[in-house]
Write a protein that binds this DNA or RNA. Structure first.
Length: 429
RNA sequence: GCCGGGGUGGGGUAAUGGACAUCCUUGGGGACUGUGGAUCCCCGGACCCGGGUUCGAUUCCCGGUCCCGGCCCCA
C-alpha cells in the first residue's frame, strides 16, 4: 500500500538538509551573536491560548483536535504566545530578556508559493524595555540575519507604527479602528474605488478617505512621514513625540544595516496585539510575500499575568527565505568540514583503517569508511563527494603508510602514517 | 473552503483504446586482480487510487487524493 504524504507537508532528504542547516545555522548564529538565548516549548498548546489572543477566526486555520483526555489542543500556529507564557512563568529573569526559538509551526490553509501547512519559523524577541533602542535592535537583528544570509540589497524593510496609526485614525474620526486596519491591510490588493467604498462603509467621508489615501500612497522616509502627518492631523504637536521616536528609531536602524528602510502606512499586520512599531521585509522586486514580519506587542503578557511586559520581536518563515535564496543562486551545497573517504581494499586491515578514521574524526573532520569492498574504481567514485580519498590496501598496512588522493586536483601521494597525521594537523590549524 | 493546471521507474521524459511502454539519468554488476572518478556492456525499477464506458483503459468519462499556482486568510 502506498501511503502519500499529508497535503502541505514537506520531506527533506540529505541533499536539502545540508543546505537547509547551513542557512539555519547562519540565522541562529546571528541571533546568538546579538546575545539572544534559545528557548523551546511544546508543539501542542491549549486551543484557548489562541482563542484568547485573536478570536475565533484563527481557530479555523489551525490543526486542532480534542485529545483523549477531552482537552482542546492545537499544533502551535505561531511561537509568540508560547514564548510569552515561558516569560511570564519566570519572575527572576534579569531584563531585558533576549530570546530566540526555531520551532515548527502549523497552519491549516491551502498551500501555495512560499506557504506550507508546516514550516519552520525563527523567532526573536526582546522583553522588558519599550524604547527606540530596543525597537531598532530587533529590526537591526532582522536585517543582520538577512544580510548574513547573503541577501543584502535583495530586500527592503517597510515599517509602520500602530500607535501613530491609531492616533491618526482616531483623529480622523474613525470609530472602528480594528476594521479600518483590516481594510488598510487590503490596500495593495484592491483598486482605489473598492478600497474607498470599504472605508465609506465604516463611516469615513470622502475627505477622510482622501487623507488616508495620501498616507498610503507611497512609501517614504522619516522626513516625508513628518510632512504627511502634519498635513493630516489637527494638532501635530500632540503626536510629535511619537514622530520623533520613529525618526530616532530609523536613525538607529541605519547603524545596523545599509539596506533600504521605508516608512509605509500600509504595513498593518493581521495580529491585533501589536501596539507600536510593526515591520515587514520584502524582496525589492516585489515578487514574493513578506520575508519576515514583526513588531511591538506590549500588552500580550496580560494574557498570563497582571504585569504588562514590554515586548518586541519578529518571525522568519523558512519557505520564503528558501525561495529567495534559490532565486539568488545561493541555495547550493557548501563543504564546511574537510572530508575523507577511506577506500578499503579487500584484504586490508580493519584495525589500521578504523585507527585512521578515528584520528581524522578527532580533529572534527569527516571520515567515511567504505564498506562495500568493491573494486577500487568504484570506491574512488564513491569518494568523489569528499575532499580526499584515502586508499588503504595491503601495501599501506604493511609499510605503515597512507595513500592520499586529492579529489579536486587528482594529485596523489603515499606518505608515512606519521606524516599523514602531520598533514591533518597542519590543515586544522 | 473555492478556482485553474497537472500526476508514466528514485529523478527527468516519450508514446499509446490492444503485443515486451521510449529515452536520459540514478542504483547494482561486469569488461578491468591498486586508481580506468572515463568509456563500453548487462541488470533492476513506472502508467496516483477507486469506479464507469469498452471485447480490451496507462490512454476516454466521473469521483477521490497528492503536487504546482491563484483566491480567501495570514501567525
Amino acid at each position: 500500500m502506498k501511503i502519500e504524504k499529508i497535503k502541505g507537508f514537506r520531506d527533506h532528504y540529505p541533499e536539502d538538509m545540508e543546505i537547509r542547516e547551513y542557512f539555519f545555522k547562519k540565522i541562529t548564529d546571528t541571533a546568538e551573536n546579538f546575545g539572544y538565548k534559545r528557548i523551546d516549548f511544546p508543539s501542542l498548546e491549549p486551543l484557548d491560548l489562541y482563542r484568547l489572543k485573536s478570536g475565533t477566526e484563527l481557530v479555523n486555520q489551525t490543526f486542532s483536535f480534542v485529545d483523549k483526555g477531552g482537552r482542546e489542543v492545537t499544533m502551535i500556529p505561531e511561537a509568540t504566545p508560547s514564548t510569552v507564557r515561558l516569560l511570564t512563568a519566570r519572575k527572576d529573569l534579569p531584563r531585558p530578556i533576549r530570546w530566540y526559538s526555531f520551532p515548527k509551526v502549523w497552519r491549516y490553509e491551502e498551500p501555495q508559493e512560499g506557504r506550507f501547512r508546516e514550516h519552520y519559523q525563527f523567532n526573536a524577541d526582546m522583553f522588558g524595555i519599550d524604547s527606540e533602542e530596543t525597537d531598532a535592535e530587533i529590526v537591526g537583528l532582522a536585517s543582520s540575519i538577512l544580510d548574513y544570509l547573503g541577501l543584502s540589497g535583495v530586500y527592503e524593510i517597510n515599517i509602520n507604527d500602530r500607535f501613530l496609526m491609531e492616533y491618526i485614525l482616531d483623529d480622523l474620526g474613525i470609530g472602528n479602528i480594528p476594521e479600518a486596519f483590516s481594510i488598510i491591510d487590503k490596500y495593495k490588493k484592491l483598486d482605489r474605488a473598492s478600497f474607498s467604498s470599504l472605508l465609506n462603509g465604516i463611516g469615513a467621508g470622502e475627505d477622510v478617505v482622501k487623507k488616508i489615501l495620501s498616507l498610503l500612497s507611497e512609501k517614504t522616509d522619516t522626513g516625508g512621514l513628518e510632512k504627511k502627518v502634519k498635513k493630516i492631523v489637527k494638532n501635530y504637536d500632540e503626536i510629535k513625540p511619537r514622530i520623533d521616536r520613529i525618526k530616532k528609531t530609523f536613525e538607529l536602524i541605519g547603524l545596523y544595516t545599509e539596506s533600504t528602510i521605508n516608512f509605509d502606512f500600509s504595513i498593518v499586520r493581521g495580529l491585533s496585539y501589536y501596539t507600536g512599531i510593526v515591520f515587514e521585509a520584502f524582496d525589492v522586486k516585489g515578487e514574493l510575500r513578506a520575508i519576515l514580519g514583526g513588531g511591538r506587542y506590549n500588552g500580550l503578557s496580560k494574557l498570563f499575568t497582571d504585569e504588562e511586559i514590554p515586548a518586541v520581536g519578529f518571525a522568519i518563515g523558512d519557505a520564503v527565505i528558501e525561495l529567495l535564496l534559490k532565486r539568488q543562486d545561493l541555495w547550493v551545497k557548501r563543504n564546511l568540514k574537510e572530508s575523507y573517504y577511506i577506500c578499503n581494499l579487500s584484504g586490508s586491515d580493519d584495525e589500521y583503517i578504523i585507527k585512521i578514521a578515528s584520528r581524522i574524526r578527532s580533529l572534527n573532520k569527516i571520515a567515511l569508511v567504505d564498506m562495500t569492498h568493491r573494486k577500487i574504481s568504484s570506491q574512488i567514485k564513491s569518494a568523489s563527494g569528499c575532499n580526499y580519498a584515502i586508499i588503504i590496501g595491503d601495501r599501506e598496512v604493511e609499510e605503515n603508510t597512507v595513500t592520499v588522493k586529492n579529489m579536486e586536483t587528482s594529485e596523489q601521494s603515499t606518505v608515512g602514517y606519521d606524516d599523514f597525521l602531520l598533514h591533518l594537523r597542519n590543515r586544522t590549524s
